[in-house]
Simulated assay, not measured.
Amino acid sequence: MAQTISVAGLRKNYGDVRAVDGVSFEVDQGEFFGILGPNGAGKTTTLEIIEGLREADEGTVAVLGLPPWPRNSRLLPRIGVQLQASSFFERLTAREQLQTFGSLYGVPAKKADAMIETVGLTDKADVRVEKLSGGQAQRLSIACALVHDPELVFLDEPTAALDPQARRNLWDLLREINTAGRTIVLTTHYMDEAEILCDRVAIMDRGKILRLGPPASLVRGLDAPTRVSVASGVLAEDEAKDLPGADEVSDDDVSLTISTRDPSAVVAALSARDALDGVQIRGATLEDVFLDLTGREYRA
């Protein structure tokens, strides 16, 4: 499969801070690729270098077979960029914003109007941007990145600060964009988002890629225990500790949770004791992989 992006030995320093420290990866044509990491991991800087917005100190980058830096005018019509914070022209409606963005690429107004329907903003087309909700503004931002029909789309934390419903709606839109054949590169703090949307993810911290691969493969590689939970009170904690396969047991007065590497034995034992009320079985997730690699301490 053709490589849309190729990054090798990328480095970028800001004084004594190594924002990007030897990053290498490739993105295939049509792939939905995620870059994950805590605050300050180097995600946005990496993306800005690939987009041609920032110059690397070391390393090579090829986007659609071309170098993005110095700012490459041949790439601009072929890529779409949605930044963390989007700025729109003041006092314009959603339709006028999109037509203005499209005009920069020679896109006819009629085609720009069609993009409004694609992102589900038809009923908001004549509403000024400052009156749009957060989710609607994000959809408009993505529409501006797509209006010239780019082959490659960069999305930097597109669902940040959105409510759960708006996030889910935006996920549906992003899946449609990818299914239509566009390559998407996404940065996000949300592990569930990456797990659902991305074909592969790179987990970054302190400027380095710690792990790269399909989310399901990374989760399987963690070899984490399964957690079996039942309603608190259906079984005594001491009795739960004696169940076959039980490794650790905790009870927070809402749920009794058993960590195990033999969930079938635990569930069978609970069933034999008629203690399956409210049972939930949870395996490891991408969030567990993320925390295992980057640690659990809070970073502002």
Rank of each mutant, 00 (worst) to 15 (best):
T44G: 01
V267K: 02
V17T: 08
A216H: 14
L210E: 02
L98F: 00
Q280M: 11
A114S: 12
E157K: 10
T93H: 09
L293F: 00
N39D: 15
A137E: 08
G245D: 12
D274F: 06
T93C: 08
F290W: 01
T45K: 05
T159C: 05
R182K: 12
G120A: 11
V254C: 06
R167S: 09
E176V: 06
S141H: 01
T118W: 08
T60L: 06
G30E: 03
G221K: 14
M204C: 07
A143H: 03
G134K: 07
I209F: 08
L235A: 03
A161I: 02
L98V: 02
S232L: 07
V20L: 04
D253E: 14
A143W: 00
E26C: 04
Q99F: 00
S103C: 00
A161Q: 12
E48M: 15
T226H: 05
E48F: 13
R182W: 00
T260I: 02
D199L: 06
N178W: 13
L197N: 01
I203A: 08
L75D: 06
G102W: 01
P150Y: 03
R168V: 03
F89S: 11
R220Y: 15
R282H: 13
G278E: 15
A2F: 12
G295W: 04
G37S: 13
R128M: 00
E55W: 12
T46C: 10
A125C: 10
E248A: 11
E130R: 11
V289N: 01
R18Y: 06
T188L: 05
E195Q: 12
A114H: 09
D149I: 01
A202H: 02
V81F: 11
S232Q: 11
P77F: 03
G37F: 09
G65Y: 05
G52V: 06
D242F: 13
L286M: 09
A231S: 15
D123R: 15
D28R: 15
I50H: 03
D292W: 01
E157T: 06
L170Y: 14
Q280F: 15
T45I: 11
E58M: 06
T285V: 03
E31Y: 14
L186M: 13
P68Q: 06
D57M: 07
E31G: 05
P225D: 01
G65E: 03
R261K: 11
E117F: 02
L174T: 00
V7C: 03
V185D: 06
T100K: 10
I203L: 09
I50T: 02
P108A: 07
G9H: 12
G42H: 05
A224N: 05
G135R: 05
F32D: 01
S250L: 03
K241L: 13
K110R: 15
I116Q: 04
T60M: 07
L286R: 02
G245T: 09
G40L: 03
D21M: 02
G245F: 12
T46S: 12
F290N: 06
P164L: 11
E237D: 12
L256V: 08
S264F: 14
M1W: 14
S141G: 14
Y14H: 07
K131P: 07
A231Y: 14
